[in-house]
Amino acid sequence: MRISPQLAVFSVCATLAYLGLAILGIGGPIAFFSHPALWVIALSTLIMTGVALFSKGNMSPGEQEDRGNRWVLVAFGILGLLLAFLPAYTDRLHVWTVGDADVRWLGVVFFILGGILRLWPVFVLGKRFSGLVAIQPGHRLVTTGIYGTLRNPSYLGLLINCVGWSLAFRSGVGLLLTALMLIPLIARIHAEEALLHKQFGKQYDTYCAYTWRLVPWVY
Rank of each mutant, 00 (worst) to 15 (best):
D66F: 13
D66S: 11
R67F: 08
G68I: 10
G68E: 02
G68M: 09
R70W: 14
W71M: 15
L73H: 02
F76V: 03
G77S: 14
I78Q: 01
L81P: 04
L82W: 12
L82T: 13
L82M: 13
L83D: 01
F85M: 05
L86P: 12
Y89C: 08
T90A: 04
T90K: 01
T90M: 06
D91F: 11
L93I: 01
H94L: 12
H94R: 06
H94M: 12
W96F: 14
T97N: 07
V98C: 06
G99L: 10
D100Y: 06
A101V: 14
A101M: 05
D102G: 15
V103F: 02
R104N: 15
W105M: 12
G107M: 09
G107W: 09
V109F: 15
F110N: 09
F111S: 07
L113W: 13
L113A: 15
L113S: 12
G114E: 05
G114R: 10
G114T: 05
I116C: 12
W120N: 00
W120M: 14
P121F: 03
P121M: 01
P121T: 10
V122I: 14
F123L: 08
F123R: 03
V124Y: 05
G126W: 07
G126K: 06
K127Q: 10
R128Q: 15
F129P: 00
S130G: 03
G131K: 10
V133E: 11
V133I: 15
V133R: 01
A134T: 07
Q136W: 08
Q136E: 09
G138V: 10
G138W: 05
R140V: 14
T144L: 07
G145H: 12
G145R: 13
Y147Q: 02
G148F: 14
T149W: 00
L150D: 00
R151W: 13
R151L: 03
R151T: 05
R151V: 03
P153V: 11
S154C: 06
S154Y: 10
S154V: 05
L156V: 07
L156N: 11
G157D: 00
L158Q: 07
L158C: 07
L158M: 04
L158D: 01
I160P: 01
N161H: 03
G164R: 05
W165G: 02
S166N: 02
S166L: 04
L167E: 09
A168L: 08
A168M: 06
